[in-house]
Design a binder for these strands. Structure first.
Length: 819
RNA sequence: GCCGAAGUGGCGGAACUGGCAGACGCGCGCGACUCAAAAUCGCGAGGGCUUAGCGCCCGUGUGGGUUCGACUCCCACCUUCGGCACCA
């Protein structure tokens, strides 16, 4: 018998599996398909332990599904565009393309060392022209269907680096530049948007999706649906001001209006006397960084415009103010202020001495008085001071409330307002004033405006000879010739869009490119699509709940409506892993010096040990701190697996009892491991395998090795081990004289008869406290169990010869005697 | 402030539908092997009391409740973590 040397067997098998195409997944209509997907990695240059933690259990699950008889596709690729490569380039001058492809090369090797069942033929890299050609093509389809549009929007700008920044490059409470630490400022730029808001309602529907509740809640909050009404006020000059409110029932209590400082009607409303003050306030609000506006407990400020509007329900003349607590980006950028029933409006009214009129009276309370109220009343009650609506009961919010329905119907009849829904979700800003991304395939012509690049001319190649050092402009704009082109409509001279796309655009459809990265007639081969889609199991970090996972759902739905994809959703089942922390319990970081390097672990223990430890040491969805001593325990277990299974049998006599117990344990473990794989409970899979090995070790001591029962135990053990530790399972499979490969074997089925216990131990409680245990035959009747329990000496001691008040027999699990 | 998740030995965690709390592993202690150590193997262990015989009491963040029986269900609270944050 030789020693277990993973460093020898692992590369050997990896090469053989690859040479044999063992993990190639091809269309096979005769078998059920399973598309297993793990979130595609960014090529940062080194595979982090977090990648291992995310990917190896996904791989194990995919392998399990394969053994269960599914035709499993498990692809991999790289999210290769993006800021880190460009920032590194700015620092050390290495071209982002060179660095990215070097990193990819390195990470491919590291990914191979996992021994995962990737089908490398399906690899897709988002920065390949053959990939981003289709990213651009999708942009054009969205544009053609009115789902991509251009508008002026603020961006973060670093005055020191002289460049615009993406949201994720702005850090900390003071919102500073991630590179130089300078606080960022706002700048207005014309940019491209996707109409994610058009899908807000559809995105709230999770029907048929097996997604964690947590993610659904995060997305639901992010989309932020509120029901209410839009009501039109008219200024004294006759201009309509539309407001959105969730409380149309409080309309009679609207005693002033507030516009966002950027609201287009502000100038017109402002009287000459107020002009100077209004202008000063607008300027101050524009200069304010987001953080100032975000502080919720900040004292409210505002300025009277001098203008008035008419409250349409009672013809009251009410003043119009501007204040930065009203956001131009939500609702209509204007509100009706009901100080008696809204905390913010109340604070504002008290500060500036504005009128407070209660219109909702809580039942059974003294009548509210607008002059003496100390806080806004936001609860349910009966409408008062509300003319025709007086006496109507309203509960608060939502279209379902009958009072609310009555008010909205009344408004609609008179053309004063209408039922409306508002969302916090904003349209997706996809323009980046950056170099290392897919160029936005649009052309601007002075006479014809914006038009897409003809599809035959795709891809719009990203030029390599570009000055990427920051100047405050998009790097592509500074290229001497690149942007010059001709208008696809009139043929005259025109300019290309010089911004690039947000990389979330690339990752919104990579699961489709994996289907057929070799395909040239479209983004994917429809035959592959029809067989493999949707993704059956998607795994990745929770941090993408409100970014990638919303974008990719939007993308799929938009494509469905454009006739490109099918089905409601791209990913049916989602599971999130947690995070591996440093040994100190803190997030891993170079500065803390607590980073765990998987390459070193693989060199020391082998990939199988690393894989098994990562599945064993924590609940997958929670994660836990790393432990260098913990991994030793798993290494010890695999050495024992090796020894116990490959060590030759010693001739010995084995009792039938030993053999029976061995079979029972094997099939009981199989039952549990099967269930745990189905439920993503990887930690108990490993611990069950450890327990079974302990049982096998005892059985072997008792002479079981060499028996058919032992042979079956080894057979099932290696099949259960194969998804977790593919190399050692394959090696032992071969060494025990079995035919290649363990990974093409089917998952064993449980022999329920063998798994059945013959005798069961039943705990006996007296008054709910454990007092004794009895052993009965597994098919004992309830009466037999009762008799045995009452016959127990310990129970006798408690009953003192008296008949018990009650005897509870819980299936065959427990007896509780109540005296 | 609002929304969500989680609190179990020295540590990571286990406990299926309300039925023996602490599986498995780490660490720890004792023992075997060894000149010795490492490796390996075996045994022990939640805390406390104990007349040392078994036994008894306490114990899953805290306090209540439901139940024959609660880590599990309900109510209130505390702590930690995550998300959102003037969203009208």
């Amino acid at each position: 018998m030789s020693d277990y040397i993973p460093q020898e067997i692992e590369p050997k098998w990896q090469q053989k599996w690859e040479a044999d195409g063992l993990y190639h997944a091809d269309i096979d209509p005769s078998r059920p398909k399973h598309y297993a997907l793990t979130m595609l990695p960014y090529p940062s240059g080194d595979l982090h332990i977090g990648h291992w933690y995310a990917m190896t259990p996904s791989d194990a699950r995919a392998r399990f599904m394969r053994m269960k008889g599914y035709n499993v596709m498990f692809p991999i690729g790289f999210d290769a565009f993006g800021l880190p490569a460009e920032n590194a380039a700015i620092k050390d001058g290495i071209h982002p393309k060179i660095r990215t492809y070097q990193n990819i090369e390195r990470m491919r090797k590291q990914l191979r060392s996992m021994g995962a069942m990737w089908d490398w033929r399906r690899e897709a890299i988002s920065s390949d022209p053959e990939y981003y050609k289709w990213t651009q093509w999708f942009f054009i389809q969205l544009f053609k269907h009115g789902l991509a549009y251009r508008k002026l929007a603020p961006v973060d700008f670093c005055p020191k680096c002289n460049t615009t920044l993406a949201r994720e490059q702005v850090w900390g409470e003071d919102r500073h530049c991630e590179r130089c630490g300078t606080p960022v400022i706002k700048r207005e730029l014309e940019q491209w948007f996707f109409k994610t808001t058009a899908y807000a309602e559809d995105l709230l529907n999770y029907e048929g999706m097996d997604w964690p509740e947590r993610v659904r809640v995060l997305q639901t909050n992010w989309i932020g649906r509120s029901e209410g009404a839009e009501v039109t006020f008219i200024t004294e000059a006759g201009d309509p001001i539309v407001v959105f409110t969730t409380r149309p029932d409080t309309l009679w209590g609207a005693t002033f209006m507030v516009l966002a400082p950027e609201h287009p009607l502000v100038d017109k409303l402002t009287t000459p006397e107020q002009r100077a003050e209004v202008e000063a306030y607008k300027l101050q609000a524009a200069r304010q960084s987001d953080i100032d506006r975000e502080a919720a407990d900040k004292e409210k400020t505002g300025v009277f415009t001098g203008g008035y509007a008419i409250n349409p329900v009672n013809d009251e003349r009410i003043p119009v103010w501007i204040a930065d607590y009203v956001l131009m980006t939500y609702g209509t950028g204007a509100i009706m202020a009901v100080p008696a029933h809204d905390e913010r409006d109340f604070a504002f009214a008290r500060k500036y001495g504005l009128k407070v009129v209660p219109v909702i009276q809580p039942e059974g309370e003294p009548l509210l008085n607008g002059d003496t109220m100390e806080a806004a009343y936001v609860g349910p009650g009966r409408m008062i001071n509300s003319g025709p609506m007086d006496g109507t009961y309203v509960s608060g919010k939502g279209h379902n409330d009958p009072g609310m329905q009555k008010v909205i119907a009344w408004l609609e009849e008179r053309g004063l307002g209408k039922k409306a829904v508002s969302y916090k979700l904003r349209d997706w800003l996809i323009s980046r004033q950056r170099y290392w991304g897919a160029p936005i395939p649009m052309i601007f012509c002075r006479t014809c405006g914006w038009n897409p690049v003809p599809e035959a001319d795709l891809p719009v190649l990203l030029p390599e000879d570009v000055e990427w050092r920051p100047t405050g402009e998009s790097p592509l704009k500074l290229h001497p010739t690149w942007k010059n082109t001709t208008c696809p409509v009139c043929g005259g001279p025109a300019e290309r869009e010089t911004d690039t796309m947000d990389t979330f655009m690339c990752s919104s459809w990579y699961h489709l490119r994996y289907l057929s990265p070799w395909y040239h007639q479209g983004p994917f081969d429809p035959k592959e699509y029809d067989y493999w889609m949707p993704v059956d199991t998607y795994t990745g970090g929770i941090e993408h709940a409100t970014m990638h996972l919303i974008y990719t759902r939007f993308f799929h739905k938009a494509c469905r409506d454009m006739g490109i994809t099918k089905g409601r959703e791209p990913m049916i089942q989602l599971r999130n892993q947690g995070m591996v922390l440093g040994e100190d319990g803190e997030k891993m970081s170079k500065s803390r010096g607590n980073v765990v390097a998987p390459d070193d672990l693989v060199a020391k223990y082998g990939a199988d040990t690393v894989r098994a430890y990562l599945m064993f040491f924590a609940r997958w969805e929670l994660g836990a701190p790393w432990s260098y001593t913990g991994i030793e325990g798993v290494a010890r277990w695999l050495r024992r697996v090796w020894t116990i299974i490959s060590e030759p049998a010693k001739p010995a006599i084995c009792s039938d009892e030993t053999k029976r117990i061995l079979r029972r344990r094997v099939h009981q473990t199989l039952r549990r491991v099967t269930r745990d794989f189905e439920q993503f409970e990887f930690n108990t899979i490993v611990s069950s395998l450890m327990e079974l090995l302990n049982e096998m070790s005892k059985a072997k001591e008792a002479g079981a090795s060499g028996t058919p029962e032992w042979n079956e135990a080894v057979d099932i053990y290696l099949r259960m081990l194969a998804p977790v530790c593919p190399h050692i399972a394959e090696e032992l499979w071969e060494r025990t004289g079995r035919t290649y490969s363990v990974h093409t074997q089917s998952w064993p089925s449980v022999d329920e008869e063998a798994a059945r216990e013959e005798q069961i131990v039943i705990p006996i409680q007296v008054n709910g406290k454990l007092r004794d245990r009895i052993v009965v035959s597994a098919d004992a009747t309830e009466e037999e169990i009762r008799a045995a329990a009452l016959a127990s000496e310990v129970v006798q001691k408690f009953t003192q010869g008296q008949p018990p008040k009650k005897v509870i027999i819980a299936q065959k699990k427990l007896v509780n005697v109540v005296v």
